[in-house]
């Protein structure tokens, strides 16, 4: 009850911090898609490069977020951005690489060899094959990777408040330091709601981007 009162009295603040939170996640994920998808496609050309890239991305994701923030402070201090928005975006960007690169890579390499052969045999160039066949078929799997990255990083961004990036994590950190359950619950609730809402939005988007009937099971084979 007290929490609801707190929420109703602080709607402006909650809105502001939600926007802050989302701007970190979506800017970072946007950048991660722009970098991760091409990397995922490029490494399909070379098995060895693929192994190395996926290995590095897997290591990054195992670094605890609080440690990653700590590691970035001295590095980014050199350009005067040790704390705040930039390190938060970079962290989310790095954490997003594994699901996005791996899903892109897997989706492209798993395109049915028969389709690849048909595309080649009909006279498509490698670029045309990618653009007309392989990427369209990979989209659902790539989008699944993006969804994983978004949901995961909405949680991680809550911790970015400790390096002064703001966001919904501020409610949680203040709630802990001031022993105020109202703020704590508000923060946790909003982070969860944001994660669930984003997931549903991306699921909808994924369905929109997949050709209507290519996922249908109608018709025999």
């Amino acid at each position: 009850m007290e929490t609801l009162v707190f929420i109703s009295q602080n709607l402006d603040l909650i809105f502001e911090r939600t926007v802050q939170h989302m701007s970190i996640v979506f800017v970072a994920i946007g950048l991660a898609i722009v970098t991760g998808v091409p990397i995922g496609i490029l490494i399909t050309l070379n098995q060895k490069a693929a192994d190395i890239v996926l290995y590095i991305a897997a290591i990054i994701i195992t670094i605890p977020s609080i440690a990653l923030f700590g590691l970035m402070i001295p590095v980014l201090s050199l350009i005067g951005q040790g704390v705040g928005y930039l390190p938060a975006v970079i962290a989310v960007l790095l954490y997003s690489q594994l699901p996005i690169i791996r899903n892109t890579y897997t989706a492209i390499t798993n395109v049915d060899p028969a389709l690849r052969e048909a595309a080649r045999g009909l006279g498509m160039t490698p670029i045309q094959r990618l653009r007309r066949v392989e990427i369209p078929l990979a989209i659902p799997v790539v989008m699944a990777g993006v969804r994983i990255a978004v949901v995961m990083n909405i949680g991680i961004t809550a911790i970015a408040t400790y390096i002064g990036a703001g966001g919904l994590g501020a409610f949680i950190s203040r709630g802990i330091s001031q022993s105020d359950p109202r703020q704590l619950i508000t923060g946790a609730l909003m982070v969860s709601l944001l994660a669930i809402a984003s997931d549903y939005f991306l699921l909808w988007l994924q369905k929109r981007l997949t050709p209507a009937s290519s996922s249908a099971t109608a018709g025999g084979h």
Binding site: D112, A114, L115, A118, V133, L137
Partner: peptide, 12 residues
Amino acid sequence: YVIQQIGLFPNM
């Protein structure tokens, strides 16, 4: 060119 697996593109 025709192949046994047919190879119609499911996205088209």
